[in-house]
Write a protein that binds this DNA or RNA. Structure first.
Length: 329
DNA sequence: TTACACGCCACGAAGTCGGA
DNA sequence: TCCGACTTCGTGGCGTGTAA
């Protein structure tokens, strides 16, 4: 009888997606410029970042004085390769502490990194100890572990500004945070994040992939967002509404399974409708919690996807305009 | 009671469409 | 040409049904 094959390794290999995406300095600058006041006397932790490569590290070193940062911490994951023929692991994760002293500035080209005992995974004990010492986490975490990553930040009650995929809004856990006003979208979204630097071995896909002037291989997914719990001006600005429901009822069909109307574009949200409206997930990019209330995500009363005449539009978020008083019957 | 097959559902480091 | 909105469908996880 053949032995039952253990194909765990194969599964592991299949599951491990390419998470080696490096954020460009221009994209970091165009977002971080809106958060400068938040960093004064704070310990910043970039916990998915090799200081020798990361543009997050570079950004905070360049702007250390202007932002009045107290300390910068970075840590980096290294996959452990257990080698039967050597006694120790050669691929420990590592971390680096920076306080902008003259000595540190002079050694920036070869920073004195400190090895972890383990792999430096953001979930590891050693990395969590650094997390506990920090105030704000800023990085581009592995998208394949996005849920776990955010869960940990929330667990340790940290401020954060991180990059994720737009579809992260559709994750139950992430939407719940947004609904509870414990996280929101940053300033840039979609093409507002121009692209990521990928390693040599990575296939350049998509029509907008390119090699930049420095030879960096860039892919532009055009579907990324910044998720944060640092306040921004944008979430206090009302969305300008120009469309009317009354007289255009035919443009706003009612859902089969919820008492509300379907709105296909954020800009088409009517200014005179006080009931529930289903809007695209990208509405959250312009969301002001004082103007709109988030009621529910995706599902109708029957807990099935919202549908119009039997057809389900793409995921919708049910909202209500707080500025309009609903007449009591 | 257990093991396995099957079906449903959630998901997506994409990529396209179409209006301005 | 730019950019916000939307979609497609293969894959894996999980719950349930059924046979042994």
């Amino acid at each position: 009888m053949t032995r039952k094959a253990t194909n765990k390794l194969l599964h592991k290999a299949k599951k491990s997606k390419s998470d080696e995406f490096y954020t460009q300095l221009c994209d970091i600058e165009s977002e971080l410029k809106f958060y400068k006041k938040h960093f004064k006397k704070k310990v910043v932790y970039c916990n998915c970042d090799d200081p020798r490569i990361s543009n997050f590290f570079k950004y905070f070193v360049i702007n250390f004085e202007e932002l009045e940062i107290k300390k910068l911490l970075t840590s980096c994951y290294r996959e452990q390769t257990s080698d039967l023929f050597s006694e120790k692991n050669q691929d420990n994760g590592f971390f680096f502490e920076y306080t902008n002293t003259d000595e540190e500035k002079n050694k920036l080209s070869s920073p004195e990194i400190k090895l972890f005992n383990g792999d430096g995974d953001f979930r590891s004990y050693e990395s969590i100890e650094l997390l506990k010492k920090s105030d704000i986490v800023v990085t581009n975490p592995p998208f394949s572990l996005f849920r776990e990553y955010v869960e940990q930040l929330v667990k340790y009650n940290k401020k954060f500004l991180i990059i994720g995929n737009v579809n992260a809004i559709t994750y139950k856990e992430i939407f719940q945070l947004i609904k509870e006003n414990r996280a929101w979208l940053g300033i840039n979204l979609g093409r507002g994040i121009s692209g990521f630097i990928v390693p040599e071995h990575y296939e350049l896909y998509g029509t907008e992939a390119r090699i930049d002037e420095f030879g960096n291989r860039i892919v532009s997914p055009n579907n990324c967002l910044w998720l944060t719990n640092l306040d921004t001006f944008k979430r206090h600005e009302d969305i300008l509404l120009t469309k009317k429901y009354s007289g255009n009822e035919h443009k706003y069909p009612e859902y089969d399974n919820y008492d509300g109307i379907n709105v296909n574009k954020t800009e088409d949200i009517p200014l005179d409708y006080g009931g529930a409206m289903g809007v695209p997930i990208t509405f959250l990019h312009k969301f002001n919690p004082d103007q709109f209330e988030l009621i529910k995500f995706r599902k109708g009363n029957d807990e099935k996807d919202l549908s119009v005449n039997g057809k389900c539009p793409y995921f919708r978020i049910l909202i209500r305009n707080r500025r309009i008083q609903i007449k009591s019957e």
